[in-house]
Design a binder for these strands. Structure first.
Lengths: 215, 215, 215, 215
DNA sequence: GATGAATGAGGCTTCATTCAT
DNA sequence: TATGAATGAAGCCTCATTCAT
């Protein structure tokens, strides 16, 4: 009885419902191919409400970006922060990431799979969003080197490792779609296996050399 | 005489010019935000020619995809194929990739940075294109395990590693933009350093375990 | 106590405040380009109040028209009525007009500078408003002829003169903007200088003829 | 046979037809209340053609403004230029004006009866258009003073007179609508009668004074 | 007396695509 | 081989107006 057609909701509630709907459509179609009409219909209201609350299609997309970036970063920090060692922090962060992507696949698509076609304002926000993720990862990575390496050099190396990790994790979200039975835990363990040793090599400045006797 | 404005070119030549122009525009704006008008102007002809030769905007995009996929796979194979060991094949392949991206950044954007917004036909072709890259990598990876592991299992593991590698490499193309002085060779070495050891652990089925006394 | 934010004003007061705001917006933007939203905001209330009190955007504009027409006509009559001779009545009327326009430029813009784009109801009211002004002027003009000319004919001539005068005066309001130091008195005198003699010629039925030996 | 549905006209021809239609609609409804749809329908084509040729609604309006301003100014000059005396030049100019308005009433409405609601670009063009008319009139007026008065002062006076004349003439176009049997010649003569003498007083710097024994 | 929530309708603009030459 | 002319469809956005409290 309390849901007499969920009409006349207070603004903050409506806004979240609109953003929910928008994420779904933006993820499915991409920014340009999404129509505000479809988002409005999915949200159960009419277009003018979207423009009243979120200003424009661009404003709507930015709102999605901001909300989901915050959610992801929060989840990542909450998981990685309390862990007692660099190794476990990285493991916890990766697990949080794969869990987030498993639970909110649309959000991840909206955050990281938009093409290069976006307006300056959106491109800036998107870059910032991606940077926020990289910053979290890089922060952990910097604490992972065996020795306490020099700061400037270490920063560059840590960035390199962070890009590698984020790219690998992103790509593995596609692999997950092909292996729906694999749990985030398993994937995390495998990725750790794959990068943990080599990552520290890189951070410590060790250099791979062409095997003896070859090209 | 030679500058009768290069009108009346034979069809195959025109087609390549059109595809050249299209890749530039698609990379800059993304599929949906690109207009056939702009591509026609950049190619120096009128729209009806595009429709006559490539059928539709979709057909034009597919042509771009196919040509560039073939170029990339060919470069990869030419580099990796002749190398005498798995390690060197992987190294050569990665180097070929980073070199390709450095030389043809637009092509890579068109191939791997298009949003999820595309029509079924395009989405299929794009998946196939990405799969072609993954197949090459996976093929090499499968020869890298220390022991000759069981085939079925190995295939899955090799795929996992391939997704990781392609994702890492893709992401590192962004890192390259921020570090324009780093050459493909340097990046390849670093990436090898980072994954070579761990990759073989994964392929050999070794399992990372939570460090003793934690979690 | 007096600044409980002036909420809950009695209806007649609120109505005047709304009309004040509306005149400003209508003058600045024109009828169609004005939005009820902007008027409501400027008036310090919400849109439903405007609809409650003035019925519609059209009703609001009509209310502006009526109030300002009455103000202008009243000012004109008060000035022209008591003067002892036709000449002085006309002079006083013109002075009242230029003074009104100086003091209430928005009102005059709303009254006489709206495009032809208005709804029938508004167009009718606007025509009536302009006619009210013309009627005042024409009434004075009719008393200005030297001789007591025949009525029917005189009426037509007086109308002609009235249109001329009102058009001239209207146009001079633009001239005033370019010459902000000129006072209404000076302009009135000049306009009188320019039309007084010829006006009476026209009213007396004298006909200008092409100068001898030309055309 | 040559008019197999007037389709596929060359661009310059189509453009003029579009402008013709636009003037009609803009005059009837005003800029804001006019819809590009209606203009397209009246022009016998579809909207995209309008945008292809004239860029935007604003561009379309500007094209109307420019074409009609040029026509009016040309007609005015052609009439006034050759006349042998100031008086006759003014008379010829006024006659050309009233003839133009009679023949192209929509053009005049578009040129001088648009409200204050227009975009900066349009407002600027409109001001320029009105100024062009005033400049023509003012140029003639300046030659009308009895004596050769001082230039600077004379310029100001001439402007005053020009504003008066243009305003009077504009207003009389409304009067003409109520008196459809009056020909431009008659109106011109009357207006000359009304202003010729007084105008020269003003230009010569004579000052009207309140009649003795009054005020 | 006053308002926050909501909408139907319509306007400007652009795009992929085709026709006739 | 090549193009100027033309369009159907659809998208973003805004506005006057009303409902429920």
């Amino acid at each position: 009885m309390s849901d007499i057609r969920r009409r006349r909701l207070p603004r903050p509630v409506r806004e979240q419902l609109i953003i929910d709907a928008a994420i779904g459509v933006f993820a499915k179609r991409g920014y340009h191919a999404s129509s505000v009409d479809e988002i409005a219909e999915l949200a159960g209201i009419t277009k003018p409400m979207i423009y009243l609350y979120l200003d424009s299609k661009e404003g709507l997309f930015l709102a999605c970006l901001r909300r989901e970036t915050e959610r992801l970063v929060t989840a990542f920090r909450a998981a990685a922060g309390p862990a007692p060692s660099p190794e476990l922090r990285l493991r916890a962060g990766l697990l949080a990431f794969f869990t987030f992507v498993t639970d909110h696949p649309d959000s991840w698509v909206v955050l990281h799979r938009q093409a290069s076609e976006l307006s300056p304002a959106i491109a800036a926000e998107l870059a910032q969003s991606r940077q926020a993720v990289l910053t979290e990862v890089s922060g952990i990575v910097r604490t992972c080197s065996t020795e306490g390496a020099g700061p400037a050099c270490a920063e560059d190396e840590a960035d390199f490792v962070a890009y590698t990790l984020v790219g690998a994790a992103d790509s593995l979200t596609d692999w997950m779609v092909l292996h729906p039975d694999e749990h985030p835990e398993r994937i995390t363990v495998r990725l750790m296996n794959m990068v943990w040793v080599g990552m520290r090599n890189v951070l410590d400045g060790e250099v791979w050399t062409t095997p003896a006797g070859e090209g």
